[in-house]
């Protein structure tokens, strides 16, 4: 889908102003997935993130853009990194932030998601950031919430802001700021990964030569996607880590969870580490300046060796910093959304 953003498409948003004053219209009320974002829209998010990075570099890293707006962060799954990142992002924009962790709310008493969202709205929320273990849950919330819903991760389905911060981090480090033709590898448990699914959309949109790699049990189902290349975007799939890593420009390792052993998907963590762990020896197959990424939290010594995670090629802490800027950008854009009537 291509959305015409207008003649000002190259303009940099002036994020010190209120979002509604922007000359560039953002046309989506919610950010639920990245599958239907056009390349123009991705570029706008990247430029807005540039502006937010500039804000973060100021002595007082705060702008009044979202002053008086109520942002509720509703997380049904444990998370520190993403929740805090959204909270810092919203506060940097001067929004009023309320945090609800599902374990401490009436959710445990059996209140439905719809009731919870209605309650949050009645309490004044205008923007809702939510994380949920059930794929598609944010769509249910968006159906009844009168403001904007930002998907902070749903089941195995999508993690839009993670994919956007990954894209930003990669573009920032690539000569010319372009991923076109660059070999990007996502390594590990794809089956259960919302990060991988969202990255498929954004990285193929950015023109990357995308490779997915993992043990056969954890890449199952992606063959059909790779071959179809949904919306004309193809990628490669392999169980051979050597084939995947050879001459790669970017290597992103995904977290392996211990539950996968119980499900009969992996023999052992040890075997996974030996066959698929991102070690220094394996990384040597990639280009010498290849970036090392990980969405966190890491199992060091399993999917990534500690010396690789902390090594000179690692941009893992950049991902965290850029995460705040990207989330400021999408909060800002959604706050100024002009949905075509």
């Amino acid at each position: 889908m291509s959305t015409a953003i207008g003649p000002d498409a190259a303009a940099v948003p002036s994020v010190d102003d209120v979002p509604e004053s922007q000359p560039i219209a953002w046309r989506h009320r919610h950010l639920l997935d990245v599958d239907r974002l056009s390349t123009d829209e991705l570029d706008l998010i990247m430029r807005t993130t540039d502006a937010m990075r500039e804000v973060l570099a100021r002595p007082i890293a705060k702008v009044p853009a979202l002053r008086g707006r109520a942002v509720t962060i509703l997380f049904y799954e444990a998370s520190t990194r993403t929740r805090v990142s959204f909270e810092v992002a919203a506060k940097n924009l001067s929004a009023d932030v309320v945090n609800i962790a599902a374990s401490t709310s009436s959710v445990v008493k059996g209140e439905s998601l719809i009731d919870t969202v209605r309650t949050v709205e009645a309490l004044g929320a205008q923007m809702l950031v939510m994380r949920h273990s059930s794929s598609g849950a944010p769509y249910l919330a968006a159906d009844i919430f009168s403001g904007s819903v930002l998907n902070g991760g749903d089941g195995w389905h999508a993690h839009p802001t993670q994919a956007l911060l990954d894209l930003y981090t990669m573009r920032e480090r690539m000569p010319g700021g372009s991923l076109a033709g660059r070999k990007v590898v996502i390594l590990g448990d794809l089956l259960h990964s919302r990060v991988a699914r969202s990255n498929i959309w954004t990285l193929t949109a950015a023109g990357a030569d995308l490779w997915l790699c993992g043990p056969a049990t954890l890449v199952r189902g992606f063959e059909a996607w790779a071959n179809r290349g949904a919306a004309g975007r193809r990628f490669h799939l392999t169980t051979s880590v050597d084939e995947a890593l050879r001459d790669a420009d970017v290597v992103m390792a995904l977290r392996i969870q211990r539950e996968r052993m119980a499900g009969g998907l992996l023999p052992s963590m040890r075997e996974y580490a030996a066959r698929y762990g991102l070690t220094r020896e394996r990384l040597a197959l990639a280009r010498p300046d290849a970036l090392v990424m990980h969405p966190g939290p890491m199992n060091e010594g399993v999917e990534i060796a500690p010396d690789v995670a902390a090594g000179p090629q690692s941009v893992i802490t950049d991902q965290v910093t850029n995460g705040v800027a990207v989330r400021m950008a999408v909060l800002y854009l959604l706050a100024g959304t002009r949905v075509p009537s």
Partner: peptide, 16 residues
């Protein structure tokens, strides 16, 4: 399991 094991379930992140 949530949805027919296949392309659509994979993209939507539903259990096959």
């Amino acid at each position: 399991a949530e949805a027919n094991d296949g392309y659509v379930a994979t993209v939507l992140g539903l259990r096959g």
